[in-house]
Design a protein around this nucleic acid. Structure first.
Length: 573
DNA sequence: GCCGTTTTCGGCCCGACTGTTTTCAGTCG
């Protein structure tokens, strides 16, 4: 079993126990273990084997033995029992925003509602509003959410698809007969949400390989099979399409499978104008002879244009730019000098400042901004002023100790519902960098929310607005906010907007990021990481920038520490 | 169920907001 499956199982146990009305702290213990393990950079299986799993905070004797059971038998008897006692659809009902255990039980006991379908029917028949504590408004909210869920059926977060891709790529690359494997399609273009995963495998010997792939433990069902293609349903519910390509036609096939349809068609037309012919099997000269191709770059060059990075292959004008040699230089990992949004165990993060710094150094950063939560966000252990002051002093101490990397004293300060900030100005002025974000009162109307955020933008101590729209992909829509007005204000007051790199946020969206830059707004990328593993999610933030055609000049993170502090109006010593 | 300037069981947990009420339970970040 992989980390993610163990984490899912622990969360499931917590959900079922919650529905049963079990002890609150027991439930929290399962949730905490799941959260900690989700952030683990190491394989749980390995830690179990070498005996270090018991040292993970939140993993005690009991949970350790449950995990052991899962690793050894592939399942956990407690979870199996819970699943047999409680209809699994109940858990989905508990996930509906505004509903929880109590409401799910209310529906189950009064109307025998066991899943979202039954809940939807009851809501349509106006049977929900008459239950105690419920009303017409709640009923509408339920229907709205179920509609959104239906729209998102079969759509997955890019991060999950990429994790699946890594599993199968590692598996396939271990075969000596396989010369290349690529994840293509929307996954390679870094679409934030994807429908399926296409893997292209280059090999001359597909037969045994196909039989072996079918036996992979993540495969749930074979939907289609022929000599060159395998369509699979995985146990993660993501559809996996494996296409076997002979090495000679691998790169044309990869180009075809990576770009969207419009991009491919435009390339084919362009090829004809250049006197060559492009199809998925190869590139041919005017006399129909196959031109040997050894890379994607070569294909683009042979049809007379510059190489187009996968993130741009959406047929949004990239081909004409590539024809005239005007493709922008895109932001790249190598440009990123630091991460500007992360949480430590001073608030709700899992790791100490020292651990974060060590990881950041490993990633080659020259600085990081530590931006823990501010005082009013109690659940996230938001820091009272005195604690913040201590953190500032401790960071100063660390900066003196570790000269190789600069730690910026930062904060993710709450924008309170009236637009004021969660610390007074004299406190904010002590910090190197201030990220201001909305974490409460999401349901304010558009006007109020917009004014609220703009008033934060106007505060001279605020450097960056964090996760501007609050969206959680596939779960929560953006709150009502006039993004254009916010962008205007950000430009006027020289406040940067964040691309929050968390794969379930990707907020700013690529469209908003593009618009902001066009209005002269600077951007930052922050992972919002709460543990070491998630520091790696900077890649998702970079992908938003690249899909928005943005280069290093638009980002705070590409400045070095002194340049950045100067830009932010802070002294550097 | 986990944890402990630990050894045995008590503490862990937070307050604003919402939609429902007409004083509050349930949900959420």
């Amino acid at each position: 079993m992989r980390n993610i499956e163990i984490v899912w199982a622990l969360k499931d146990i917590a959900n079922y126990l919650e529905f049963k009305g079990d002890n609150y702290y027991k439930i929290q213990a399962y949730r905490k273990a799941a959260r900690v393990l989700a952030g683990s950079p190491r394989a749980i299986r390995e830690m179990y084997k070498d005996g270090t799993l018991k040292d993970v905070p939140g993993v005690g004797k009991n949970i350790l033995s449950k995990i052991g059971e899962m690793l050894e038998n592939g399942e956990c008897s407690l979870l199996q029992r819970l699943r047999s006692e409680i209809p699994p659809g109940i858990i989905e009902i508990m996930q509906v925003p505004g509903l929880g255990t109590k409401k799910a039980r209310l529906f189950y006991e009064n109307l025998n509602i066991k899943n979202l379908d039954e809940l939807e029917q009851a809501a349509r028949k106006k049977q929900i509003r008459v239950l105690p504590g419920m009303g017409a408004k709640r009923e509408q909210e339920i229907l709205r959410y179920i509609k959104m869920q239906r729209k998102n059926t079969g759509i997955f977060l890019l991060s999950l698809a990429r994790e699946l891709a890594v599993e199968f790529m590692n598996f396939l690359e271990a075969y000596p007969c396989v010369s290349d494997v690529f994840a293509a399609g929307s996954v390679r273009r870094w679409n934030p949400l994807v429908k399926d995963l296409n893997l292209l495998v280059s090999t001359e010997f597909p037969d045994d390989l196909i039989l072996d792939i079918e036996k992979h433990p993540l495969v749930d069902e074979v939907l289609y099979r022929d000599k060159h293609r395998l369509k699979l349903k995985t146990i993660w519910m993501i559809m996996l399409d494996i296409i076997i390509i002979p090495p000679a036609s691998f790169y044309p096939a990869l180009v075809k499978a990576t770009g969207n349809e419009g991009h491919w068609e435009a390339l084919c037309e362009l090829a004809v104008r250049q006197g060559v012919f492009l199809d998925p099997e190869g590139l041919y000269d005017e006399r129909g002879r196959l031109i040997p191709i050894t890379s994607e770059k070569e294909i683009y060059r042979k049809i007379g244009i510059d190489y187009i990075p996968p993130e741009m292959r959406e047929n949004r004008g990239e081909i004409s730019l590539a024809s005239s040699g005007d493709l922008p230089v895109l932001l790249d990992k190598k440009h990123i000098k630091g991460d500007l949004h992360m949480h430590s165990n001073w608030s709700d993060g899992k790791n100490s400042l020292e651990e974060l710094v060590a990881k950041a150094q490993e990633k080659g950063y020259s600085y990081v901004a530590v931006t823990d939560h501010s005082q009013s966000l109690k659940i996230a252990r938001g820091m009272p002023v005195e604690k913040l002051q201590k953190q500032i002093e401790y960071i100063e101490y660390l900066n003196n100790k570790f000269k190789e990397l600069t730690i910026l004293s930062g904060i993710e300060v709450d924008i309170l519902s009236d637009g004021s900030l969660d610390y007074p100005d004299d406190v904010l002025s002590r910090l190197d960098i201030v990220v201001a974000s909305v974490h409460t009162a999401f349901k304010q109307d558009r006007e109020k929310m917009t004014a609220r955020i703009i008033s934060a933008i106007k505060n001279p101590h605020v450097d960056i607005i964090g996760h501007l729209t609050g969206r959680i992909l596939g779960y929560r829509d953006a709150y009502q906010v006039d993004v254009d007005k916010v962008i205007e204000a950000a430009a006027e007051y020289n406040t940067a907007l964040e691309i929050n790199a968390s794969p379930d946020r990707m907020d700013l969206s690529e469209d908003n990021a593009y618009r902001a830059v066009k209005h002269g707004v600077m951007l930052s990328i922050g992972t919002d990481a709460h543990d070491l593993r998630r520091l790696g999610e900077i890649d998702y933030g970079i992908s938003v920038a690249r899909r928005a055609w943005l280069g290093p000049e638009h980002f705070l993170n590409t400045m070095d520490a002194s340049e950045l502090l100067n830009y932010l109006g802070r002294d550097y010593d």
